[in-house]
Simulated scan of single mutants.
Amino acid sequence: MRLVSSRASKLLIAAGLASLLAACQSGRTQVASLEGYTPDPALKTASKSNLKGRVSHACVVTQSKFQKVAESSVAQPCGCYAERTLSTLDSAEIQSYRTTGYFNDSAKAKALNALDSCKLPRPV
């Protein structure tokens, strides 16, 4: 049984990657790199648990490519990253993420701290 359609999974991956990459970029560069990006409408009503899964999945995909390792080897640290990041975000930061599909400046700082805490390298 397929839990998620192919198109939905592609949108999920794209939204997650965009949020992780946006979290690691600075102010003006972030806006330019996300030009034309449309956030997944499901973010607006997604549970916090679902948001954690999205962030974790984006981390796994990004970190495995960045580190050139198997996705399974970064799954646990990425779960740590997603948990720590979302647990530190306040309601305004979560609402911003739901609306835009990426972390705002204050949430980016928290996401970077979570990467460090979970011993994941920061993307360049």
Rank of each mutant, 00 (worst) to 15 (best):
L21E: 07
S33T: 14
L11G: 00
T45K: 15
Q30V: 10
A32T: 07
S9G: 00
A46H: 05
A15G: 13
V55M: 13
Q63G: 06
L21K: 04
T29S: 10
K65Q: 11
Q63C: 07
K65C: 09
A15L: 01
K52N: 06
G27K: 11
L12V: 02
T38W: 13
L12C: 00
L21Y: 03
S5K: 12
T62L: 14
Q25L: 13
R7M: 13
A8Q: 14
E35G: 04
G16E: 02
V60S: 03
R54S: 03
L21P: 01
R7T: 14
Q30F: 04
S19T: 06
G36K: 07
V31S: 07
S9F: 14
L20W: 04
K52S: 06
K44E: 15
C59H: 08
P39F: 12
L11K: 04
G27N: 10
T45L: 14
L17D: 03
R28S: 10
I13N: 02
L51M: 13
A42L: 14
G27I: 08
K44A: 15
L3P: 00
L34D: 07
C59P: 01
P39C: 14
L43V: 06
V60C: 05
S9C: 02
Q25M: 12
S49R: 13
T38Q: 15
A22K: 01
G27E: 15
L11I: 05
S26W: 02
K52H: 03
K44C: 08
K52R: 13
Q25E: 13
E35K: 11
S9R: 14
M1V: 09
V31H: 10
L3F: 09
A46F: 06
I13T: 03
K52D: 02
L12M: 05
T45W: 08
S33C: 15
N50K: 12
Q30S: 08
R54Q: 06
A46R: 02
S6A: 14
A23K: 01
V31E: 13
K65N: 09
G53P: 01
K44V: 11
D40G: 04
L3Q: 08
S5A: 09
A23F: 02
A14Q: 10
P39H: 11
Q25I: 02
K10H: 11
S64K: 13
G53Q: 05
S26M: 07
T38S: 15
K10L: 12
K44Y: 07
P39K: 11
G53F: 01
G27M: 10
L20H: 02
A46K: 03
A18I: 08
E35S: 11
S64V: 07
K52C: 01
S56D: 05
A14Y: 04
A8P: 00
K48P: 00
L21D: 04
L43E: 08
A8S: 13
A42K: 15
A8N: 09
G36Y: 05
L51A: 03
T38R: 14
M1D: 09
A32G: 05
L34Y: 05
A46P: 01
Y37F: 15
